[in-house]
Computed example of a mutant assay.
Amino acid sequence: MVDTNTTSTPSSSAASRTVLLLLRVLTFVFLLIALILVAIDKETVESSIGEIEIKFKDIHAYRYMISTIVIGFAYNLLQLALSIFPVVSGNRVLTGNGGYMFDFFGDKIISYFLLSGSAAGFGASEDMHRLFKAQDLPLNSFFEKGNASAGLLLIGFLFTAIASIFTSFALPKKA
């Protein structure tokens, strides 16, 4: 008699591998656009004390947002490489339970990290917009670009979170 309550092999259908690869590509695209958008964000305004140039690096929350984008981008590049190989060859690079655990926990950690960067960007944009508006300094396009970048980062979070759901399906099933 065969005991079916022990360990089953992780599911790794071609369809789920392809969907996971698509999610990683979409995350890559949204993080790249978010990075470009916030990195080029600067504006010069006239004030009573003279000309003021504000850049993303002048706002700490935007610098945090960029760091989350860069770290998420690096992780996503690694996962893209690890996802392309199984789709092409049918074999995983990281074999055994450790590879599935790395995918699952990596996706979980990075997705929440991306979410925190997005929240920081949205919060800073709103707070700074109100502050500069009270000073009669028109920086609408600067903060709109920051909001757009935070929105794209939020979409990157969503794709990574969905990818973590797919990687959870591949975890070994224990009785």
Rank of each mutant, 00 (worst) to 15 (best):
A119P: 01
L80C: 08
I33T: 08
A39V: 04
F56N: 07
L77H: 02
I40P: 00
F102T: 14
M128N: 13
D107R: 04
E144D: 09
T18P: 02
G106Q: 11
L20Y: 07
G96A: 03
A39Y: 11
V19A: 15
P172G: 05
L131T: 15
A119D: 11
P86H: 03
G72H: 09
D136M: 06
T44A: 14
P138N: 15
M65H: 08
A148H: 03
E126M: 15
Y62R: 00
S168Y: 13
S67F: 15
F105E: 12
F142T: 00
I84S: 00
L114R: 10
I59V: 14
L137W: 08
A170W: 03
Y64N: 08
I110H: 11
T44D: 09
I36T: 04
S116L: 13
L153T: 15
S116A: 15
F102L: 15
A61H: 04
L37C: 03
I40M: 05
I66W: 05
I109R: 05
L20P: 00
L153N: 14
R92C: 07
S47F: 07
L139E: 00
T68E: 02
G151I: 05
D127W: 11
S11Y: 13
T27N: 05
E126N: 14
A161L: 13
V87L: 13
P172T: 11
A163G: 07
V88T: 11
V88P: 02
D103T: 01
F142Y: 07
M1S: 11
L114T: 09
L171D: 05
T160Y: 02
A61F: 01
A124H: 06
I52R: 09
T9G: 03
E126Q: 15
M65A: 12
T18I: 14
Q135D: 14
L94E: 08
S89D: 02
M1T: 06
T68I: 06
S111Y: 09
G90I: 08
G156L: 02
T4Q: 13
G121R: 11
I110S: 12
T27P: 00
D127V: 11
G96I: 04
S12A: 11
S12P: 00
T95G: 06
Y75K: 04
I36G: 01
G99H: 09
F102W: 14
I162H: 03
N91P: 00
L137Y: 09
A163S: 13
G151D: 04
G106W: 13
P10Y: 04
L158I: 14
V70G: 02
I165M: 12
L82P: 07
A74K: 02
G98W: 12
G99M: 10
S12E: 14
V38S: 02
A15Q: 11
V70P: 03
F143I: 01
A170F: 01
G99L: 10
S164I: 02
A150Y: 09
E51G: 00
F169W: 14
A124L: 07
G117V: 10
S47A: 09
S116W: 07
S16K: 08
G99S: 07
Y112T: 04
S16R: 12
L154H: 03
L35H: 02
L137G: 00
S83P: 06
P86T: 05
S67G: 07
L115T: 05
P138M: 04
A81P: 00
A175S: 10
G90D: 05
R24I: 14
S149Q: 03
V88D: 08
K133A: 15
S168P: 01
G156F: 01
